[in-house]
Design a binder for these strands. Structure first.
Lengths: 117, 117
DNA sequence: GTAAACGTCAACCAAATGGTTGAATAACGC
DNA sequence: GCGTTATTCAACCATTTGGTTGACGTTTAC
């Protein structure tokens, strides 16, 4: 195992290239969520969010489990690990400051107002 | 400064989503290169590579400087830093093992034969 | 000066992406 | 059973993406 293919990096990075999907990941960082609840803060159809969730799922960034009529979405942070390894090799970046990370999240969450400019 | 916008993460991750572009970055990790030399190992036209280099440039991942009739391409690893910070926040990944990184590069370089299946 | 090397531009093309709407399926609540 | 809630599916659309080819502008070599 650990057959880390180019394909996987392709889908992971492509999935991360969309701001809606990154915002979804940030939301799931706090807790697992149902599809409807994921969709709530966005100004787009439920079907569109459903598609985004499929993209995240096939990239391995989240998993989805149906319990009753509700499909729960759960972050799978391990999928980011390979991509993170790939990136870090380019700069030997120092360990991340969690405050930095929270600033990024604040910029991206859909319900939060973006202050800059 | 440090106006880290969503737009930047969009373009950086989108740029990384293509295997040709990741391979180019890996090549530039070793040394600066002319456009023609970047294109040489790939089985696609020079114009296509030129477009890929533009995508990488507008994402800030590389810079290009023309000296004489040769345009030199140079890796700009700082652009990866913000994206790396974004990603690391999801898992608090341990510091990367450089051997891991070299395995990834081996999988992606175009002139290297990819053994897996 | 003329030919070759370096690189981009413009036009084109097929396929993928990100969104919509409306119908369909499945599970609850009563 | 029946309406409601949760989610996906299918068809459609506009835009973007990743590639091609051929013409074009520069710089260099001789």
């Amino acid at each position: 195992m650990a057959t880390t293919s180019t394909l996987k990096l392709d889908t992971v990075f492509a999935a991360l290239g969309d701001p809606t999907r990154r915002a979804i990941l940030a939301m799931l960082l706090e807790d697992d969520m149902a599809v409807t609840d994921v969709a709530e803060p966005f100004e787009m159809s439920l079907a569109a969010i459903s598609k985004h969730l499929q993209v995240l799922t096939s990239a391995g960034l989240i998993s989805q489990e149906k319990r009753g009529r509700v499909k729960w979405c759960k972050l799978e942070p391990d999928a980011l690990k390979e991509a993170s390894i790939w990136m870090q090799g380019f700069g030997q970046f120092e360990a991340v400051n969690l405050d930095d990370f929270e600033r990024f999240l604040a910029l991206e969450l859909p319900n939060e107002d973006i202050a800059s400019e």
